[in-house]
């Protein structure tokens, strides 16, 4: 079985578990929505300020919500020792990383679609300026975020480590992605999508680094 097929099997399994448990719908989406409303209330009613800060708030909401998604992704592996089953399966362990990253990316993209519409409604964010650049920013940012979270999620195998250590590992590492995503989104939503190229390039580089790192080292992290 090829790496791609093994990854697809892993991703399909994770998505099936997610659909059954409705974790994104029941916990992650309400969390992101509440966070955005709290941000909005803390900034006050000034429409210009809300519009200016909306790209940053949007990405912060996605970042924090993604931590919940990653936690859930590895929780299902720890419930009955399933992660050891993956370890002992004679498969390329990179498939576990790629499959988990793909499944989380799909969930995050669905979440982002809702959150972007929410921000557009609440904060008056314009989505029509450069939709292709906006879509590229979210697609590339989501791939990078999914790669970082899936790579480091395996380090925080115990529930306690997952609660405490995982955000400390992932959030600082995701800072370049956060900055590039915010800048590209701000440019795309203010009609300057053509100037977002360098930020999108940074996202591409971030994705390439973490996808390559995860594919190469994940097996070593999983092994004893």
């Amino acid at each position: 079985m090829t790496l791609i097929r093994q990854s697809a099997v892993m991703a399909a399994k994770d998505l099936r578990i997610e659909i059954r448990g409705r974790y994104a719908l029941g916990a992650v989406l309400p969390f992101a929505g509440t966070l955005l409303i709290a941000f909005g209330l803390s900034l006050g009613p000034g429409r210009t300020l809300l519009q200016e800060t909306a790209p940053g708030l949007l990405w912060l909401a996605v970042l924090f919500a993604s931590v919940l998604s990653f936690r859930r992704s590895y929780e299902s592996e720890g419930e009955d020792g399933a992660l050891e089953g993956l370890l002992l399966a004679p498969m390329d362990k990179a498939a576990v990383f790629l499959g988990k990253a793909a499944a989380v990316a799909v969930q995050l993209l669905a979440l982002e679609a809702v959150v972007v519409l929410l921000v557009a409604g609440l904060f008056g964010l314009s989505l029509g300026g450069a939709p292709a650049a906006l879509a590229a920013a979210f697609l590339l940012g989501t791939i990078g975020l999914a790669a970082v979270g899936s790579l480091f999620g395996v380090l925080a195998e115990s529930p306690r480590a997952r609660e405490a250590v995982f955000p400390l590992l992932v959030l600082p590492l995701a800072t370049p992605l956060l900055v590039a995503g915010v800048k590209a989104t701000a440019l795309a939503t203010t009609g300057h999508g053509g100037e977002a190229g360098s930020w999108l390039g940074l996202l591409v580089a971030f994705d390439a680094v973490f996808l390559a790192a995860g594919t190469l080292v994940f097996g070593h992290l999983l092994e004893d």
Binding site: V9, G21, G81, P90
Partner: peptide
């Protein structure tokens, strides 16, 4: 072992099909 390495939100048949896919 006493830990059965099953996924709680999959059915018994789905767990076995997943294992089959992993082991080719």
């Amino acid at each position: 072992g006493h830990r059965t390495r099953l996924y709680e939100d999959l059915t018994g048949a789905e767990n076995l099909r997943f294992a089959c896919a992993l082991y080719g």
